[in-house]
Simulated assay, not measured.
Amino acid sequence: MPSLLLTVFLLQLAIHMVNTFGASSINALLWRMYNSLPVSKSESSAEQRELKSKFMKVRKELNATSSQDEFAKWAKLRRQHDKLLEQLEKNKASTDSTRSTFDSAVSTLRWLGTNGLRMFMQFWYAKQAMFWIPKGWVPYYAEWLLSFPRAPLGSISIQAWFLACTAIIILVSDALVAVVALVGSFGSKTAQEAKKEPMAFPSEKAGAGDSKEEL
């Protein structure tokens, strides 16, 4: 059943990607994507950015105004400053609450779609063979381990296939990281050697000596 084999591999790959990049980084990326959508929260974020821009402008003008020489102007700017600051704090509290709810919902859906789905598949297909091992290829104890816990003897269980996919993904991932690191270090080393290597210029004295010899 190639479809189930591929599904298990892709699911384990998704779990590995989540563990590699981190749940917080993925949540932050999804939050930015959510804010870019034309929804009410996006409008709230745009309003908050506008308020922040006005606040910084008023604050800059307030700092440049003397409270003694221009008291009336300073008092007016101070009231605007305090009002904008209060609005910013309210918007920030609302945004933080929405962000917390968003992170909680995304984390729950991500777990259900990765580890939760893996646990369900391991239970649902526990008695089903992923594929069969040719008879006589491995000893009896190896057949028992590969079919653990409830798959038919002589077959590969879904648990064993999950472990095999995990091992392959980790090996390929480590190899890619090593190759990228090696290429990067080789490129930086080549650039450093190119900077350190002096350029050869013809000597004026040598040129003068050659001209005398020719004369």
Rank of each mutant, 00 (worst) to 15 (best):
A181L: 14
V180E: 14
A151C: 06
I168K: 08
W161I: 00
A181E: 15
F148C: 02
S147G: 01
A160M: 12
F148H: 09
F162V: 09
C165K: 03
E143D: 11
A167K: 10
V172A: 11
V177E: 15
A151I: 06
L145Q: 13
L145W: 06
A160G: 02
S147L: 00
I158C: 07
Q159G: 00
L145C: 12
A175P: 02
S173Q: 13
L153A: 01
I169Y: 05
E143V: 01
P149A: 09
A151T: 05
I170L: 10
A160N: 06
W161S: 06
D174K: 15
L163V: 01
A142H: 09
L153S: 02
P149V: 04
S157F: 04
S173C: 06
S147N: 01
R150N: 14
L145V: 14
S173T: 15
S155I: 08
A175M: 13
I156V: 15
D174T: 12
A167N: 08
L163C: 05
S173N: 13
V177Q: 15
A142Q: 10
A175W: 10
W144T: 09
I156A: 08
I156S: 08
V180S: 14
V172M: 07
F148Q: 03
D174V: 09
C165A: 15
I158D: 06
V172P: 00
A160P: 02
I169L: 13
S155R: 06
P152Q: 01
